[in-house]
Design a protein around this nucleic acid. Sequence first.
DNA 1: GTCCGTGCAAAGCGTTTGCACTGTC
DNA 2: GACAGTGCAAACGCTTTGCACGGAC
Lengths: 141, 141
Amino acid sequence: MDAAKADAGLIQSRYRLTRQRAAVLRVLQADGGHLDAEEIHERAKEELSSLGLATIYRTLDLLRELGLVQMVQYPNAAARYEARLDKHHHLLCTRCHELSDVEAPHLDELVGQIAAGVGFEPRDFKLQVSGLCRRCRNDRG
Amino acid sequence: MDAAKADAGLIQSRYRLTRQRAAVLRVLQADGGHLDAEEIHERAKEELSSLGLATIYRTLDLLRELGLVQMVQYPNAAARYEARLDKHHHLLCTRCHELSDVEAPHLDELVGQIAAGVGFEPRDFKLQVSGLCRRCRNDRG
DNA sequence: GTCCGTGCAAAGCGTTTGCACTGTC
DNA sequence: GACAGTGCAAACGCTTTGCACGGAC
């Protein structure tokens, strides 16, 4: 995949592209979901059994710094990571705890307006919505 | 203050209004800001020196359950609590780490639309914006 | 040979829990 | 006297760190 190669190149431009780092990135890009450090560790170990959890955390920091992964943090839960790069937001189902992605087309402007009103210069923002996902809603309100 | 009395009444309706609980609520209502458990502990101890940190956490859970306080959670930081009850959102300055409040008038509708688009039933949502506050922006971008 | 990256284990931090005690009804 | 509420200390879960080793330049 071209994207994967580009990402590998980005890592190499500033750091060594080790087997460990490649494995973590591969896991995140393959899954497309929202994995926590331990889940990433499990999966990456299938490929590189000696891999330690500390390396996962260090690699995730690095990938975040390079802008290759994003982190989502919800209360009372481990941080979750995703390779998805485009601007998007999260819907958390309070029943099945599934996290899904949505785009919010006009939110940028709205945030810009809100921030401008109080002299704040926004650099990034996250919308986190909790409620019931389609499935849980049908299963039983 | 009437509001304080009403809140005390709400606690009493389901739990005992102990000196510890009153102290925590008083601290939060007096400050109006965003304090973490340890800060609340410090301040409440001025009033009740024997107070333990575990009680602070237990009380905050209870006040949250009663809807008297809200919690804000940012990555790599202790949870912060505030007595403010109306719907609002947060601006976090990445330079001075100050957290400030804003209202987002038309956000409800937008969130409703976004969620409806994917069959999600929103129950609550939070917008968290990071960037530079007015002061830090002037001090030096 | 230097230095970056790693694995392991230990430490760190905010938070929660177990338990015996206390005060209120 | 029952029981909700408390303080203390220990345990918890996620994450970070110290340190000695290993491998790439």
